[in-house]
Design a protein around this nucleic acid. Sequence first.
DNA 1: GTCTATACGAAGATAGAC
DNA 2: GTCTATCTTCGTATAGAC
Lengths: 188, 188
Amino acid sequence: MATDDDNVRARMARSAVVLFGERGFSATGLRDVVAHSDTPRGSIYHHFPSGKAELARAAVDRAGLDAAASVAGDDPVVALHACLEAWRATLEASDFHAGSALVAVAVEPREQTGAAEATAQAYTRWADAFTASLRAAGVRRKKAGRLATLAVAAIEGAVVLCRARRDTSALDDVGRELEAAIKATPRR
Amino acid sequence: MATDDDNVRARMARSAVVLFGERGFSATGLRDVVAHSDTPRGSIYHHFPSGKAELARAAVDRAGLDAAASVAGDDPVVALHACLEAWRATLEASDFHAGSALVAVAVEPREQTGAAEATAQAYTRWADAFTASLRAAGVRRKKAGRLATLAVAAIEGAVVLCRARRDTSALDDVGRELEAAIKATPRR
DNA sequence: GTCTATACGAAGATAGAC
DNA sequence: GTCTATCTTCGTATAGAC
C-alpha cells in the first residue's frame, strides 16, 4: 500500500507550507521540515527524489488547494470573510510568525525554487475559486475575474503587512473595503 | 568629506533593493550586492559595520521612501496609476525578475533580517503618503486610511502575482478595481 | 578605506549500510 | 524505507596587511 507513504509525504508538504510561510523558502532547511513534521529523517529524498524543488511544488500545491477551498461557496462576502478570518486566526495564534508559503516561494528565483509553474497555478486556482463565488452571486464574468484578482492580491499583501506590523489591522481594512467593493458591484 | 562615502553606501543599498526584490533576502549574498553595485569589495563592513542586517535596514528605508514618493500628489487616481505604471515598467524591463524588497524582507524572520521595524515603518510611510493623497481629494480620514491600506496591500500582492504568472494582468485588474473603489468614495 | 585570506557554520545532496 | 556519515559548496563575518 502507498497509504503510509502518502501520509509521510503529505506531512512533510504540510510542514513545508508552514515553515516556508514563517521563514521563507531559502531560510527553511530540509532538516527543519523533517523536524517539524516529525517524519523519518532519512526518507526525505525517498519521498521527494529531486529534493527541495519537488518539496516546494508539493507545498505550493497544498497551499493553493487550501486557499481555493477557503473561498468556496455561493456567497462571496461570506467566502471573503472566511478566508480573512482564517488568516487572522493563524497570524494571531503564531504571534505573527505565520505567513504565506505562496508568497515565500514566489519571491525567490524560479530556477532556485523549481516551483514557479506550481505557484502560478496555485494563484490561478485560488482566484478562480473566488471568481466562481462572485459568479454564483450574479457578478458578470470579467468583473468577477478582476474582483477576484484584487481580493487575492490584497489578502496576500495584507498578510505581509500584518506580519511586518505585528497587528491585524491591515486584514481588517482590506476586508472592509473589499466587502464594500463587492456589495457595490451590479448583479444580473 | 563624507560624500564619496555616502555614495558608495547609497549604491550598495540601492543594489540591495533590486537584488532582495529579485532573489529574496536570504538568497542574496553580500558578494552579490558588491558585484551589482560595482563598489569596493572590502568595504561593505566599513559602510555597514553590523553587516547584512544593517544593509537590509538601509535597503528597506530606501524602498519605503521611493514607494511613498511614487504615490505623492493631490490626485489619488493619478498617484495610483503612477505607482502601478512604475511597477509594470520595472517588471517588464526585468523580464519579471524584479520584485518588492519590502515583501522579500517581510517574509523572513525578524531575527534573521534585523529589519522588521524598518519594514513596518516603510509600509506605514507608503500608506500614509497615499492617505494624504486621498485626504487632499476630500476623502474622510478613516476611510482614506483603509483605502490606502487596501491599495498598498493589493499592489504588493499584485507584484507577487505578476512575477509568478509572468504577466502584468494582475496589476491591470488591481488598478482598475482600485480606481473604481476610489471614485465610488464620497467626498467632502 | 580597501584589500586578501580565512574562520566557522550550515546548506543541499549523495552513498551505502541495514 | 530509513539511517548515518560525508561530500561539496556557499554563506556571513572577522583579522590584519596596506
